[in-house]
Amino acid sequence: DELEKRVKKIARKLNLSLDQVEEWLKRNNNDELVEAVKRLKKK
């Protein structure tokens, strides 16, 4: 979905793993995208 695409884009842009992106999003209080990261990690 759109949020998952955004997460992947962030990960690529910042050259981070999904775990690192998740931490980064949590620090930025971006719950919506944190949920998207969790969905991606399950895939």
Rank of each mutant, 00 (worst) to 15 (best):
E22A: 05
L14F: 12
E4I: 12
L14P: 00
V37N: 03
I10K: 00
K38S: 05
N30R: 13
E22W: 09
R12T: 08
R39S: 07
S17P: 06
Q20W: 06
E32G: 06
L3A: 13
I10A: 03
L18P: 04
A11E: 01
V34N: 05
N29R: 10
L40H: 04
L33Y: 04
K41N: 04
D1A: 11
K43H: 09
E2W: 11
K42V: 11
D31M: 15
K38E: 09
D31E: 12
R27S: 13
S17V: 06
E32M: 09
K38G: 06
K43N: 07
K38A: 06
K42S: 13
K42G: 09
N29W: 10
K43M: 10
W24G: 01
K42I: 08
K5L: 13
Q20M: 07
L18V: 03
V34A: 12
R39K: 08
E22K: 05
E35K: 08
S17K: 04
L33F: 06
V7H: 02
E4M: 10
K43Q: 09
V37C: 15
K13W: 12
L3C: 13
A11I: 13
K8N: 08
N15W: 06
V21A: 03
A36T: 05
K41P: 02
E4V: 08
K26A: 11
V21K: 00
W24S: 00
R12G: 07
R27W: 12
E2A: 12
K38F: 00
W24R: 04
S17G: 06
N15Y: 04
L33T: 01
D1G: 07
E2Q: 09
L3D: 11
L25M: 05
E35T: 05
V37R: 01
K38L: 02
A11V: 07
D1F: 08
S17L: 10
A11Y: 01
L16A: 06
Q20D: 10
E23C: 13
D19P: 03
Q20N: 02
E4S: 06
L33Q: 01
E22Q: 05
V37Q: 02
V7E: 00
L33V: 02
R12F: 06
E32T: 09
K41T: 05
R6S: 08
L25S: 02
L18I: 07
K38C: 07
K9E: 15
D19Y: 05
K8L: 15
L3K: 05
N30K: 14
N29T: 09
K43S: 09
E22D: 05
E32I: 09
L14I: 04
L25D: 00
K26W: 05
K8V: 15
E4L: 07
R6K: 13
E22R: 04
L40Y: 04
D1I: 12
D19W: 05
E35N: 07
K5H: 11
W24H: 06
L33S: 01
R12Q: 12
L16N: 02
K42P: 04
V37S: 03
K26C: 12
K8W: 10
N29P: 07
V37L: 08
K8M: 14
Q20G: 07
R39H: 04
K38R: 13
I10H: 01
R6T: 13
A36M: 06
E23W: 05
A36Y: 03
R6F: 14
L3G: 07
A11W: 05
V7K: 03
S17T: 13
A36I: 11
N30Y: 15
K42D: 12
L3H: 08
K43P: 04
L18R: 00
K42Q: 13
Q20L: 09
E22M: 10
K8R: 13
E35H: 04
N29Y: 10
A11P: 01
A36N: 02
K9M: 13
K8H: 11
K41E: 07
E2Y: 12
V34E: 10
R39V: 02
E23S: 05
K38H: 04
K41V: 07
N28F: 13
E22H: 06
Q20C: 13
V34Q: 07
E35Q: 08
K43G: 06
E32A: 12
K5T: 13
N28C: 15
K13Q: 14
V37D: 02
E2K: 11
D19M: 06
R6A: 14
K42A: 13
K42R: 09
L25G: 10
K41Y: 04
K26V: 10
V21D: 00
K8Y: 08
K9D: 15
Q20A: 09
A11Q: 14
L33K: 00
E32S: 10
E22L: 14
N30L: 15
K41Q: 10
K13F: 12
W24Y: 13
R6L: 15
L14D: 01
R27V: 13
S17H: 05
K26F: 05
E4H: 03
L16M: 15
R39A: 08
A36E: 03
K43W: 10
R6Q: 14
E35G: 04
A36Q: 02
A36R: 02
A11L: 14
N30G: 09
S17A: 06
A36V: 09
N15V: 02
E22Y: 10
L14R: 06
D1K: 09
L3V: 05
E32D: 11
N28Q: 13
V34Y: 10
K41H: 05
R12Y: 06
R39I: 04
E23V: 03
E23I: 06
D1Y: 08
D31P: 13
L18G: 01
R12P: 02
V37P: 00
K5R: 14
L16G: 02
D31K: 12
L16I: 08
K13T: 12
E35P: 02
K9I: 14
A11T: 05
Q20V: 04
L25Q: 00
V7C: 06
N28D: 07
I10Q: 01
D1P: 07
L40M: 09
L18S: 02
L18H: 01
Q20F: 05
D31R: 11
A36L: 08
R39M: 03
N30A: 14
L40I: 11
V7D: 01
E23P: 00
R27N: 14
K41C: 08
K26I: 10
W24P: 00
N15T: 03
E2L: 12
D31G: 08
I10C: 14
D31F: 14
E4K: 05
K41R: 12
R27F: 14
E23F: 02
V34T: 07
V7Y: 02
S17I: 08
N30P: 04
V7N: 01
V21S: 00
E35A: 10
L18Y: 10
D1N: 11
K9S: 14
R12L: 12
V37G: 01
N15H: 13
L25C: 12
L33W: 05
V7W: 04
E2H: 09
K38I: 10
V7I: 12
K43F: 10
N28M: 15
K5Y: 08
K8D: 08
L16E: 03
D31A: 13
K13H: 12
V21I: 11
K13R: 13
L33P: 01
D31L: 15
E32W: 11
E22C: 12
N15Q: 09
E35S: 05
E22N: 04
N29L: 10
Q20Y: 06
N15F: 04
Q20T: 04
K9F: 07
L25H: 00
I10L: 11
L16C: 11
K13M: 14
K26Y: 06
N15A: 08
E23K: 06
Q20S: 04
K42E: 14
K26M: 09
K43R: 11
N15L: 04
S17F: 08
R27Y: 12
L16T: 02
D31T: 14
R6Y: 12
R6D: 04
N29K: 11
E23N: 07
E4D: 04
N28Y: 14
W24T: 01
L33C: 08
Q20H: 04
W24L: 13
R27Q: 15
K26L: 09
V37M: 03
N28P: 01
N29S: 10
D1M: 11
K41G: 03
V37F: 00
E32K: 09
N15C: 15
Q20R: 06
L14T: 03
L25F: 14
E35D: 08
V21F: 08
K38D: 07
R12A: 13
D31I: 15
A36G: 02
R39Q: 08
L16Q: 03
K9C: 15
A36D: 01
E23T: 04
K41D: 02
E22T: 04
Q20I: 05
V21M: 14
L3M: 13
K13A: 13
V21Q: 00
E32F: 08
N30H: 15
A36S: 03
V21P: 00
R12H: 12
L14N: 07
K38W: 00
K5N: 12
L14E: 03
K38T: 04
L16F: 10
K43E: 09
I10T: 02
R27P: 01
N30I: 15
L16H: 03
L14V: 03
S17C: 13
D19A: 10
E32N: 07
E4G: 04
K9V: 13
E22V: 07
D31H: 14
K42C: 14
L3P: 06
R12N: 11
E4P: 02
V7T: 01
N29F: 11
K42T: 11
A36K: 02
